[in-house]
Design a binder for these strands. Structure first.
Lengths: 212, 212
DNA sequence: TAGCGAACTGGCACTCAGCGGCAGTTGGCA
DNA sequence: TGCCAACTGCCGCTGAGTGCCAGTTCGCTA
């Protein structure tokens, strides 16, 4: 679903399968019975994984709930070096890279992603965990940019602001994407990519927004 | 510290004093012995408040840890109607309002605020809780703006982006403000306000940041 | 292809955050 | 003065997350 099960050693594939099994059990369960009503113990029972292992695979219950969405950011982080080697306005470079990563998510990613996004919208605890991952992403970008544009004044702040805009555009796009009632079955990733692109291009105009 | 103890009914003043006592005990303890090492039970013991009441006064341990910083956002939220009645670019309006709120925080606010900010920098759990409050702020602004500029295209997204920039500028300013080793005793609120203003005016230039 | 070492695993018991229920208290107000 | 509603403390519970350790499984090397 979120990690191809056909690469690496036997061991790492087994882990990937376990993680995947947990995600597959968890997200529909969260949607049907409620996030709080589904306990980690129950999930472990269902997926036949010990609780101890659960916390080796996931940083916590929220991490599990956000796996599909977080995978996007984690992939982006992993590819940062390559991304930041490109030329052009940072906002475009990062924004484009984000869209590309979404386009490359494994087949079948959409359905859990929608469930994950909805959970994030309704459960602040989950939402917060998602923001944390975005924050980690921002930190990486800032570090890389500061090192790269060593002398530039306020490169640090600029990088932060750019990331904030990208993250905001992404959030807005995902919100819109997952809200139609039939999104879980019909939302396409092309749609999401289009939404992200629209938000990204519309974002700079926000600075002109004036009251009265 | 964070709420004047001289207003409202006897009852509400008692509550305010309890909250304050807890904050006063907690923040230094977190700083000295570590956030995780200080348990809620211990804090309740020290402040002579039952655990049950603790969770009536605070949304959780992180909420307590962030009280000084969160108070800023909560005040801003409370005054939103008045703030959004002003004229001018939204970014300026909201940014200015934020600075004004900081300026009006009660005397002695600085020291716990610094401790709070440091905690937020070192403990992701705390940081996440802080972002959640900012998110709540953003949501309020978005709702108000959408209602106000009913017809405007993408008013929703624009409001989000503006808030994201304000929040980012604030974060950057607070980071810089609390990092000198002697900040806990010497950091002044004028300094913080200046930092926020600088970040806010520098932020729009981020859109121009270009690689190579 | 045997076997060694490292990495992983499950199980158990534990800590701690946070909540629900309830009976007792307190303060606001008529 | 006395009533009512809001608040309080206490008890016990659930569930997330961790530390420990002995057992196993896999990958690698000879």
């Amino acid at each position: 679903m979120t990690t191809p099960t056909t690469a690496g050693t036997l061991r790492s594939r087994r882990i990937a399968r376990c993680r995947q099994r947990l995600v597959e059990v968890a997200l529909p369960a969260f949607a049907e019975r409620g996030y709080d009503a589904v306990t980690v113990d129950w999930l472990c029972d269902q997926a036949e994984v010990s609780k101890r292992s659960f916390f080796r695979y996931f940083a916590g219950k929220e991490d599990l709930a956000l796996t599909p969405l977080n995978d996007v950011w984690r992939t982006l982080i992993a590819e940062l070096d390559e991304v930041l080697a490109r030329r052009g306005p940072l906002l475009e470079v990062v924004g484009d890279a984000l869209v590309e990563v979404v386009e490359r998510m494994p087949p079948g990613w959409e359905r859990p992603a929608v469930l994950s996004a909805r959970l994030s919208g309704t459960h602040p605890v989950v939402d917060a965990a998602g923001m944390l991952v975005c924050e980690r992403f921002t930190q990486q970008v800032v570090d890389a940019i500061v090192e790269r544009l060593d002398g530039a004044p306020a490169a640090d702040l600029s990088a932060r602001v750019v990331c904030a805009i990208v993250v905001t555009a992404h959030r807005a796009a995902v919100d819109a994407w997952c809200s139609p009632p039939d999104a879980a079955t019909s939302a396409s990733r092309a749609e999401l990519c289009a939404l992200i692109r629209t938000s990204l291009t519309a974002a700079p105009a926000a600075l002109e927004l004036t009251l009265d």
